[in-house]
Design a protein around this nucleic acid. Structure first.
Lengths: 204, 204
DNA sequence: GGGTTTTAATTGACTGGTCAATCAACTCAT
DNA sequence: ATGAGTTGATTGACCAGTCAATTAAAACCC
């Protein structure tokens, strides 16, 4: 029946609670008890399943990263052509779920956590590498490799920057506006790098 | 003789120590005792002069913001023409002092702090507003107001993004590379927005 | 200038509170 | 009755903030 084990249920609930709690607090200064309470279990149980606060938080971080990754993959599967694929990546970053205030705040908190936790730093580095390589793959079909690399870094940095500013701003997440900013920048960068189309057309 | 009062000396030393400690730890999880020890005073003295940990940290944040602002102003005073002024602003952000690993880490920590502290949020909002208005002033001389506004936001976000990635990266701060990225993006954005020069030339 | 009072600087010791982590005990389904 | 699930109570560490007491410096007075 594949009925999820109680262990699985509890772990999932605790991870979800951790994300929510971290997101709504806006920092990692969250006690295990708070998270446990939100998941309707005792703090002892959280320790029982995760061993330590650190592990619980890392699991939460992994979960956010996984969700994002799944979303990217799903969108990429539906996108055809380099431009569409680039847009798919950007869309994933500004997806309704990902770009929710809580999630963004949690994301920011994890960036700080990475300063002191090797585990967190590793996870973020994997995310960064994947984002870069995804962007690069499509960009290479549009512009020179050197340009592609630079643009990939610029777009990645821009996405992070938009996120951080989002976390700070008071209002609701203005997804569309944020997305438009990144798309607009990307278009400009591509335009001034000079499309590769003609070249390839001639060469082929 | 304007000999600085002992109070001034201690405050300055404590603020400096706080910045260093926060920067090297990479988070605000720093005890008052640690800061005090680095400043060669007792923790009781830190409380005596600042009243609370919160106030001490806010003072440290204010100091970093002030230094940045002073640098921007100094560079702007030397720059003539909108392009030079834009470059001056970018240069300030990637100045040797500002872009030091510790300072960037402290900056990131403050962003998180702003999530829970009104005081910190206020300070950051002032910084953001100033950066935006500085960029906008010069951009308006180059492109349409609407474009100028969008570009200002994009550049500001990009700067923040480059910072956050810098904080995460392991190596030394690669100032020049970071600066080049922002400058390159700005050039592309300006190029595709279409300079205003001709229009103004004709109009005048 | 020497002596005296005020004021500032400084600290060690203490307090109250918080919290991660542990553990022994209890429940309950199988 | 075995073992997974679960918890309340406890422990040990840490830490912001306070206070009374000590020393150093200034200000004042003759």
């Amino acid at each position: 029946m594949a009925r999820p084990s109680v262990q699985h249920l509890r772990r999932a609930a605790l991870i979800e609670a951790a994300i929510t709690e971290i997101g709504s607090t806006g920092s990692l200064d969250v006690t295990v008890s708070q998270v446990a309470k939100r998941a309707n279990v005792s703090s002892a149980l959280a320790h029982h399943y995760f061993g330590s606060k650190e592990q619980l938080f890392l699991a939460a971080m992994r979960e956010i990263l996984t969700r994002y990754r799944r979303d990217v993959i799903a969108r990429l599967a539906r996108a055809v052509g380099p431009l569409a694929r680039l847009n798919a990546i950007i869309d994933a970053s500004f997806d309704e779920q990902q770009y929710a205030r809580e999630v963004v705040a949690a994301w920011l908190a994890f960036y700080v956590k990475a300063q002191t936790s090797d585990g967190a730093a590793r996870l973020l580095r994997v995310y960064m590498a994947r984002l870069h390589s995804n962007l690069l793959a499509s960009l290479k079909r549009l512009v020179d490799p050197a340009e592609a690399n630079r643009i990939a870094e610029e777009v990645a940095a821009l996405i992070d920057g938009v996120y951080i500013r989002q976390a700070l701003g008071p209002g609701r997440a203005d997804r569309m506006r944020s997305k438009a900013m990144v798309e607009h920048s990307l278009a400009s960068l591509l335009a001034s790098a000079g499309r590769k189309d003609e070249v390839r057309h001639v060469a082929s």
